[in-house]
Amino acid sequence: MAENKTQATGASVDEFLAAVEDSVRHRDGLRLLALMREITGKEPEMWGPTIVGFGRYHYKYESGREGDAAAVGFSPRKASLSLYGLMYGPEAAELLPRLGKHKTGAGCLYVNRLEDVDQAVLAELIKAGYRHVTTALHSP
Rank of each mutant, 00 (worst) to 15 (best):
M1V: 03
M1E: 07
E3F: 14
E3Q: 12
N4P: 01
K5G: 08
T6Q: 12
T6C: 06
A8C: 14
T9A: 08
A11T: 08
S12P: 01
L17D: 10
L17E: 15
L17T: 11
A18G: 07
A19F: 06
A19D: 14
V20K: 10
D22T: 07
S23C: 13
V24P: 00
R25Y: 00
G29T: 08
I39M: 04
T40I: 04
P49Y: 14
T50Q: 13
G53M: 13
G53H: 05
G53D: 08
G55K: 05
R56L: 02
Y57R: 04
Y57A: 06
H58E: 15
H58I: 06
Y59P: 11
K60E: 15
K60Y: 08
R65A: 12
G67C: 13
A70N: 11
A71Y: 03
A71D: 02
V72A: 03
V72G: 05
G73N: 11
G73W: 11
G73F: 05
F74H: 01
F74M: 03
S75C: 05
R77V: 00
R77T: 02
R77M: 00
K78S: 12
K78T: 02
S82I: 01
S82V: 02
S82C: 08
Y84M: 01
G85Q: 07
L86N: 02
L86R: 00
L86K: 08
M87F: 05
M87Q: 10
G89T: 00
G89P: 01
P90E: 12
E91G: 00
A93G: 07
E94M: 13
E94S: 15
R98Y: 10
R98S: 10
R98L: 07
K101A: 13
H102R: 09
G105K: 02
G105E: 13
A106W: 04
A106S: 14
C108D: 11
V111D: 05
N112T: 03
L114K: 02
L114Y: 09
E115S: 06
D116I: 09
D116E: 01
D116G: 07
V117S: 05
D118T: 00
D118G: 09
Q119V: 01
Q119G: 03
A120T: 08
A120F: 01
V121M: 04
A123C: 08
E124Y: 05
E124R: 07
L125D: 12
L125G: 04
K127H: 01
A128R: 02
A128Y: 04
G129A: 10
G129W: 09
Y130F: 15
R131S: 14
H132C: 08
V133T: 12
V133G: 06
T135N: 15
T135Q: 13
A136I: 10
L137Y: 12
L137T: 06
H138M: 12
P140G: 04
P140M: 14
